[in-house]
Amino acid sequence: MSGSEQLTALLQNNSVAIVSMALWIFGILWMMPGRKVTPSRGVIPGLVLTLTGVAGLLLSFNAVYADVSEEVMFWAFSIIALVCATLMITARNPVYAALFFALATLSTCGLFMLQNAPFLAAATVIVYAGAVIVTFLFVIMLAQQSGAAGYDQTAGRAAPTVLASFVLLGTVSVLVSMAPPEISTVPPVDDSLRLAGAATAGEDAAGTAPGGGASMRIAPVDELLAQEAAAAAAAEANKPEPVVNLLSRATVSHPVGSMKGLGRSLFGDYLFAVELAGTILLIACIGAIAIAPRREEGAL
């Protein structure tokens, strides 16, 4: 196929996604402040365009979760996250922007829940909504007591930037929707490794649990045994011993995202990383103190 034919095919196969992204672009551009301070054009048309665009983009994947409630939650969280993100970057009032950011963060946390990450969802809400946003709001209030500032009413180079960003987004979405990438899953744990792991974990005798699909449920034992047999056969096919972060593997008792599993991972495989992150936090704290203006002697 020649280049132009390829391009035509690409456009035809992804017409829905492309059209919806175009709508979204127009929505953003509608709401985005201009180069000069101009009155707002009203958010409703932009909001409609954005909603349509986001929905179209998600619809173009043509897939649903097995569970209806999950599907509904996905739609709700995705649309809220993306629309709030759009509103956040186009808001002319930084306070609103921060609040939209909080909303987008909350929705993202909802998506985390959907992806088996309840702990992360909670942690993000606590860190962002509880700490970051509030602090930022304080700063905004402190800085902008006198109301609207000119620099919040203008934005530079909106059109090219939006186009470039959507080229990237379009590339990603077209690439993955046309030919979903094949990911290399970590091979099942073979006997020796599992024994080592079992000795470590004691109660993890049941081996690995498949975390595929929307499964947070534990698979029936006989099915697991069958799977193990298949895995052993695969392992015998002269493959080198796989390198894995053993403690990060999901097990039956510690499925992906559970507090225990995540804890084993963090304080097992990533023990040093945790220490390192702690050091970075220390540096950042002391750094923030050092950056903050020194107060006068005796003053609070």
């Binding site: 530079g156 180079r157 090219p160 930037t161 470039a164 960003s165 080229v167 990237l168 590339t171």
Partner: peptide
Amino acid sequence: VTSYAGVMWFGAVAAVV
């Protein structure tokens, strides 16, 4: 600084394409 970031972003997108 944002226009610097802009050129970086355009560069990255161009590089991807």
